[in-house]
Amino acid sequence: MKQLLSIKNLFVNVEDKEILKGLNFEVNAGETHVIMGPNGAGKSSLMNAIFGNPKYQKTNGQIVFNDVDITNAKPDEIAKLGVFMSFQNPVSVEGISVFNFIKTAKSKLTNSPINYFDLKDEIDKYVLQLDMREELSKRDLNVGFSGGEKKKAEILQMLCLNPKLAILDETDSGLDVDAIKVVSKGVEMFKNDQNAVLIITHSSRILEHLKVDKVHILLNGKIVKTGDASLVDFVEKNGYAGFEGEN
């Protein structure tokens, strides 16, 4: 299977503190991966590091996406290669509607103008499937959205922008039943054998409705264990303490 993402020996500092300490893993097309770990293990650092957030300094290692070295690429360059990230708490931007934002992003990503009516049909379809309020796409991006509405807007963007790899930050949504439904539904609609999903979470709840290929346990800045979906059950029963020795 085609390898999409490969991370080798990644070291990342945030404000001169080492957060990721030699991290390795790979994601192939057609797969759904989960990274689990307790708070403070480095989950959000990993996502931000993949996406070239300048606050996360890479001191060693390499990230390759679809045969392109993106270790030092900028977020927009990474997005153009086909990587998407759903934010747990996306910022609000006044003055641009969800619809217009998706239109702008899509035209930047594809480097071509977007037909208004085609996009409208596409968005209307997803809005229905995700059980979103119709007017949401006309409202300013995330402005005054509830947590659930933000989640739906992120998933809507993922579906419209149709990346090769979608990274979903679900660090906080472990207990929110509606959020879980939206994410699993979105992933189900999105997933095919050409693309991949990487879900980052600390709770197993989100995974109940998803078919997961690989689970990675992130502890103290390293992947300490990789296994199949059964690892989720193990975490459910034993927590992360059982992996301490593997570090």
Partner: peptide, 25 residues
């Protein structure tokens, strides 16, 4: 906000323009 918009494929300049236009809207 700039980072968020850039992860959707907007360049830094585009991202700033979206934010400033929104601020001015």
């Amino acid at each position: 906000a700039i980072y968020y918009l850039m992860t959707r494929g907007l360049t830094e300049q585009d991202a700033k323009a979206v934010i400033v236009r929104g601020f001015a809207s």
